[in-house]
């Protein structure tokens, strides 16, 4: 059974929607140790021997199974670097839920740097969900630096949902992907920063195979004195479709830098970038006020909806 305290359970709920031990394969990492691990007939989770981290092997054809690998940290001053590799067999169809919650009540920085590599076999389908959450009243920072590398073989499809809504002070996210023929990548990123937080999100997606496609959409809100950078680059090396979108709301003294990057190396590459940054539209607030909300409540509803 799991040996987790109240705070650790709360973090687990925030990042993985877990109220109890998950079904299917899982590994729960708590303060740099495994607090529980389970493999299934089709999904094998083994710890790495050379560095910290896991190897997750999913057999070809595995359908409707899930892997949960949440991380929780509650000790102040902990700093870890973890490598998790996922080998997803041909024609598999799985859901992978990662995520990291840090509760830092101390005065030392807590940092989790997770490098996730996905080797996605032919025609396999992966839905990947990664949530970040920070809490705790200490002066020590909560720092998360996720690195995601995706290698997609022919006809595979990967859908990633990345969410960071609260409490992470400093984050630098780097996502790279290489897509083979007919492969498809969809990324939905939702981000909210407040206080003096900083968030950097960098994407480099290479569309190498014919008819590959990528759709990367970031919705973000920067409040208080926070600062975000969205730097998305798509490289079209074949007949392909690429789309990046940064849709952001700034409030208070928040700042956002959106850096579009499109590189077409094939005449049949069709690449689009869209970016819109601005404060909440005044008529949206007024409309909700005519429905009885105060200005602050109206803002809250608009942002909640926007980040849904």
């Amino acid at each position: 059974m799991l040996k987790l305290d109240e705070i650790q359970m709360r973090l687990l709920r925030e990042v993985a929607d877990l109220h109890t031990v998950p079904e299917g394969a899982y590994n729960i990492r708590s303060n740099s140790e495994s607090a529980g691990r389970q493999s299934t007939a089709n999904i094998e989770i083994t710890p790495k021997t050379d560095v910290s981290g896991l190897e997750v092997r999913i057999k070809p054809g595995t359908k409707n199974e899930s892997v949960h690998i949440p991380v929780v940290m509650t000790k102040s001053g902990l700093k870890e670097l973890v490598y998790n590799d996922f080998f997803i067999g041909e024609n598999a169809d799985v859901v992978i839920v990662a995520g990291c919650g840090i509760d830092n009540c101390g005065n030392q920085d807590s940092e989790h740097d997770g490098i996730h590599r996905f080797y996605v076999g032919k025609n396999a389908k992966v839905k990947y969900v990664e949530k970040h959450y920070g809490s705790g009243t200490g002066t020590g920072k909560r720092i998360l630096n996720p690195g995601t590398e995706v290698y997609q073989e022919e006809g595979s499809s990967v859908e990633m949902e990345m969410v960071q809504i609260k409490g992470v002070d400093d984050t630098s996210r780097t996502t790279t992907a290489e897509l083979g023929a007919g492969a498809k990548l969809v990324v939905r990123e939702r981000l909210m920063t407040h206080g003096s937080q900083k968030a950097l999100s960098t994407y480099v997606v290479k569309l190498n195979g014919a008819d590959s496609s990528a759709d990367i959409v970031s919705r973000s809100v920067a409040r208080d004195d926070s600062f975000q950078t969205f730097d998305a680059k798509i490289v079209g090396n074949a007949a392909c479709h690429g789309h990046t979108e940064c849709d952001s709301i700034i409030m208070d003294r928040g700042r956002i830098l959106a850096v579009p990057g499109l590189e077409a190396n094939d005449v049949d590459a069709a690449l689009v970038h869209e970016a819109a940054i601005g404060k909440i539209a005044g008529d949206q607030i007024i409309k909700l006020m005519t429905l009885g909300l105060t200005e602050a409540e109206a803002e809250e509803q608009i942002i909640n909806g926007f980040l849904q």
Binding site: R219, D247, A281, D283, Q284, I286, K287, Q301, I302, N304, G305, F306, L307, Q308
Partner: peptide
């Protein structure tokens, strides 16, 4: 009428 992203 006003439009809202994400509000159903």
């Amino acid at each position: 009428p006003v439009r809202f992203k994400g509000i159903r």
